[in-house]
């Protein structure tokens, strides 16, 4: 299977702090790849660095064969990478519809098709189309954040902790939606909820102290109790 995105010995700082020491992995087309690790391991920083929101001090990030390290975020986004941030980044004063139209950038047959599909997937968004984003519930905001990234014809979605702070029933809905998106988009997911990650992930990468320490098939990780205990604190 082709590698869509490849990180090679990536290092990054936030101010004077050395956060990423040696991140290397590749994301295969059509798969859900999951970044796992304890709090503070550098998972979110990895996503932000891919997106150009943090600068790369060493190493390369290759997307479709082109080095995108230290490119501006809007250039990276226009290459087909979408980010669903941990805080969702909803524009609170804009309505759901306006949030979606800002994300769509241009309306054409493809984006309209995607919009229809995503509104079928998240009927709540259709229901609250004219409601300001700031007045949505946590789950609805998460759905809007995912829908916004999906509608923009992205080939790769970077999704950061979509289950964070959500009720179990909403987590199920979000899991289901990511599973459905999997057929159409490659996904790189950061997730603390191992149950969710193991349900939708094809491959995993474990990050510890800013380094990728393990990777492999998700099925194999499910049975490796020792690794789960050491790096994820799951016994």
């Amino acid at each position: 299977m082709n590698s869509l995105l490849k990180l090679n010995q990536v290092e990054a700082y936030i101010n004077q702090y050395h956060i990423l020491h040696n991140i290397s992995f590749d994301v295969r087309e059509g798969e859900v790849n999951v970044l796992l690790g304890r709090n503070g391991a550098g998972k979110t920083t990895t996503l932000r660095t891919i997106m150009g929101l943090n600068s790369v001090s060493k190493g390369t990030i290759t997307y479709e064969g082109e080095n995108i390290a230290n490119e501006k975020p809007h250039i990276i986004a226009n290459k087909g990478i979408g980010l669903v941030p941990e805080d969702q980044g909803i524009f609170a004063d804009l309505t759901v519809g306006e949030n979606m139209s800002v994300a769509m950038k241009q309306e054409n047959a493809e984006s309209t098709k995607r919009l229809e599909w995503v509104l079928e997937l998240f009927p709540d968004l259709k229901k609250f189309w004219r409601k300001p984003g700031g007045q949505l519930s946590g789950g609805q905001k998460q759905m809007l954040a995912i829908a916004r990234a999906y509608v923009n014809e992205n080939e790769l979605l970077l999704i950061d902790e979509p289950s964070k702070g959500l009720a179990p029933v909403v987590v199920e809905k979000v899991t289901e939606s990511i599973q459905q998106m999997k057929d159409q988009t490659t996904i790189l997911l950061v997730e603390q909820n191992f149950l969710m990650a193991s349900q939708i992930g094809d491959r995993f990468f474990i990050i510890d102290n800013g380094e990728t320490v393990h990777h492999g098939e998700m099925e194999a990780l499910k049975t490796d109790k020792a690794m789960m205990k050491t790096y994820l604190g799951i016994s």
């Binding site: 150009g52 975020p73 809007h74 226009n78 980044g89 800002v102 994300a103 950038k105």
Partner: peptide, 9 residues
């Protein structure tokens, strides 16, 4: 920052 990562300059 969010607008930038949606692809707007």
């Amino acid at each position: 920052q969010r607008v930038e990562s949606l692809g707007y300059h």
